[in-house]
Design a protein around this nucleic acid. Sequence first.
RNA 1: GGCGACGUAGCCAAGCGGUAAGGCGGAGGUCUGCAAAACCUUUACUCAGCGGUUCAAAUCCGCUCGUCGCCUCCA
Length: 488
Amino acid sequence: MKIYNTLAGKKEAFSPLEEGHVQLYVCGITSYDYCHIGHARSSLVFDMVVRYLRYRGYKVTFVRNFTDIDDKIIARAAEQGVDSTQLAEQFIAAFYTDMDALGVLRADIEPKATEHIQDMIDLIQELIEKGLAYPSAGDVYYRVGKFSDYGMLSGRKLEDMQAGARIDVNEQKEDPMDFVLWKGAKPGEPKWSSPWGEGRPGWHIECSAMSRKYLGKNFDIHGGGKDLIFPHHENELAQSVGANQCPFANLWMHHGFVTIKDEKMSKSLGNFLTIRDVLKEYPAETLRLFIFSTQYRNPLDFSETALQDAQTGLDRMYDCLAQINELVQAAEQGGDSTIGQKDKKKIQSLRQRFEKAMDNDFNSAQALGHLFDGVKVLNKACRLVGSQQEVATEDIQLLEQAKVTMQDLAGLLGVLQQEPGQYIQAKKDRLLASLTLSEQKINDLIAERNAAREQKDWATSDAVRDKLLAHNIELHDGPDGTSWGVNA
RNA sequence: GGCGACGUAGCCAAGCGGUAAGGCGGAGGUCUGCAAAACCUUUACUCAGCGGUUCAAAUCCGCUCGUCGCCUCCA
């Protein structure tokens, strides 16, 4: 497998420190608000990474933290007049609700910052002892100038940053680029006691402390969004390498942003959509298909159209699988194979092609391409096979196996995980729930129309059809009668 | 100002040195009383522009233009 390493600035062959075991740390949310689509991308990307690594035979130890104490949490709690702990807990609960709705696997370890205060204090002490940090008026700062590799992750030099950076007016700092490890508490703020007085940890120190506690000083992969590269991950790296005097994460994975009209979706711009907003309109698998249709490092532009495209594509995949189900059940076995050699090869190589794409830095977009290619070939095969009186056992088995493979592979992206029949039914149910029309009424109308058709009363027949279509119900006239579906 | 990413058909998106995957949309077709749905076929002599390296470039190098991001909290 090859994975892009931000630290190296290129794709590298991946091999974990301990054979067969991957240790992964991902920066989780700061819990002060509902998660938006950007958070969904983050969770979904690493969900895919974990699923695929496990599929590839690795044991994965996955740690994802919660930042449950932070300036923004304190500010929001004050705004709402609630306790900051309570606020953090509330949005952690909301996070789980959203993640469950998206089908995101739980991390193996989900540590909270507030439960690791002592680990952070210990780490800060070590940094002070090594001369890399200094207390100042109740705060503690990291002495950036003492860490010669500062900037190695984000690819910038200290001098360059100072040129354009907003100068921090904080006069407690020796250098404007120094960052805070421990913040002295102001009156009324949440606080913990420490050797430097009462206060709370700075943002970056929690990840250094918790990753060390659960994964050790040196581990395999550290991940997060591109916006975390600087300063968060740069600072983490400075803390960990500074304290441990050994390499930190060997590989850094950073995913791209979700944009709206090509602008970054963010709280400060106010152009964000929450996960729960989107899930009101679209099934989770549709959102997943949309997110995985772009390689994780590239920007992903969110739009109604894009989501609808994903919905159409997902429907097509399910239709294909449903068709295989029907065919397999109805087929009389016997006869010669009718599926062409070329198509057989395409079907049989699906897994291999999918893996090759995913092995190349989790190229889910390409992997999905292969899946859609599979849909096309399988549809073609179904048509051929369906036109036969008797179907070769070989062909039936090939189709059945292909269906299992499709769902197995798509499962690594968390899509196509429902029984096709159920998926199609669920879609009908959703529509029915939003209509005043009952299923009984629809069937009555269909009967009425069919009666008119028998009389060749096309005007009445078409009027009924148009009436139903006005409710987004489309009729399918087939050899076995008329069925109905949802016009998405 | 510093650093970085990106620019591929109407839209989205792979490809990263060997002659353009896939999706949506469009156009034809099968089916149908006509439709719709579904399915099939088709849809970039060309990869922002201009130079260069090479037997060979969308892919490597340089410049220009454009878009976005980071440098401050952010997934």
